[in-house]
């Protein structure tokens, strides 16, 4: 399924030491497995099981998702602006597929 769509909302720039909020919304069905689709087949489990956020090479946030997480999971977290750098968002899906997105934070 190639409909992976992530929306990352965060400030483009921040002052050093400022606490910034990062909001991440992903489009994903998060099939928990065992449900029956319209054709009567059993849908296998396929969820995003991990979101890792790396800021300027350092991991700052990890969100392990299980079958209790809703479809299109939204997560918001805070981190401290330290230096100008890329935030790398990496989602791991069941089956080993990895999706990545980057966002740049400029620290003034």
């Amino acid at each position: 399924m190639s409909t992976f769509n992530a929306r990352i909302t965060m400030p483009a720039e921040a002052k050093a030491g400022e606490i910034i909020e990062i909001r991440v919304l992903v489009r994903h069905p998060m099939d928990r497995g065992g449900q029956v689709d319209a054709e009567g087949r059993i849908v296998p489990r396929k969820i995003l099981n991990r979101l890792t956020v790396t800021y300027a090479g350092e991991p700052v946030f990890r969100f392990d998702m299980h079958t209790g997480i809703s479809a299109n999971p939204f997560v918001s977290f805070t981190t401290r602006a330290v230096e100008t750098g890329d935030l790398l968002f990496e989602w791991r899906e069941d089956g080993g597929v990895v999706f990545t997105r980057t966002a740049r934070l400029v620290v003034t």
Partner: peptide
């Protein structure tokens, strides 16, 4: 099951992480 495990690894500000947790009955 575990609904979610959140790891705040380093340099985070005051943490407030609202994930969306749901009982997965329907999609």
């Amino acid at each position: 099951d575990m609904a979610a495990s959140i790891s705040v690894l380093a340099a985070a500000g005051p943490t407030s992480a609202p994930p969306c947790v749901s009982p997965p009955r329907k999609r």
